[in-house]
Amino acid sequence: MFRSLVRLQGALGNTLSLTTVCPRSQFVLKYSTATAERKKFYQDVSISQAENGLYEVNLDRRKLKTPGGKLFTVPNEALAIAVATEWDTQRDTLKFYTMHLTTLCNTALDNPTQRNKDQMINAALKFLETDTVCYRVDEPDGLVDLQKNEWDPVLHWIEKRYNVTIGSSSSILGPEIPEATKDTFRQHLNSYNFWSLTGLEYVITQLKSVVLSLGIIDRHLNVEQAVLLSRLEEEYQIRCWGNVEWAHDYDMYELRARAAAGTLFVHLTSESSTVKRKLMQD
């Protein structure tokens, strides 16, 4: 029982406390445990738009619901299609650990940890104090240079982009982040809606870095670059000692998938698209 809880945490990130909050915890546990795959119980997946403008996902004739029992609804068509594709591409069994967008939507809909925006922003900003790109090593020289050459440009970019000071340090306490910097980021994060913030926090917790996360969200980096920078020390060790497919590659692809899902989730839930058509001249 305990072990499956731990696995659940691994698979769903912060959806874990669902089991304590939600009265149907037994069902949730069965539904979302990564190892216990469920048999596929549907054939066709489709989406439909409800009267309130939200999109729903239908499995055969039934409507998809969240683990908490709410109706599964998403704000736009693109996200609905991406989620539907995740369900559609499952073969004989449902592998929930490959359905990152569905998981994120569930988290946003159910809000299992019952947090508000301020709490989420504070949790996200906690990562700034221990940001991956701010912690440097003193030795070995190769890694010192690598960190300087790879991380400094991103750090400079974000300092310029948000007009803040962050700095880096090789002491165990990390750099002293000024209060003004935190306020700037707090204000910036406040401009995101609840859904995007869910995605953003997910990316930050995956990459262990606010700087890199904002780098992809602001489209300064692509996912592969951000993941590489987040795993810089590991990549250095791989270069020295060799690559182990079942650990290194496995982790890397998982991190990439999660970071990409989070990024896409933020972009899809925060954008308001407008279509401008050229006037036909004929």
């Binding site: 991406a82 592998k95 490959t98 990152h100 967008l101 992809i216 692509n222 996912v223 592969e224 497919e245 079942w246 590659d249 496995y250 692809y253 998982e254 990439r256 998938a257 990409a260 899902a261 990024t263 896409l264 972009h267």
Partner: peptide
Amino acid sequence: HTYLCLLMSTRSHLVL
């Protein structure tokens, strides 16, 4: 590009 990365990584991860 992000979506492509999501699809590719998920598939590779599943294979491994």
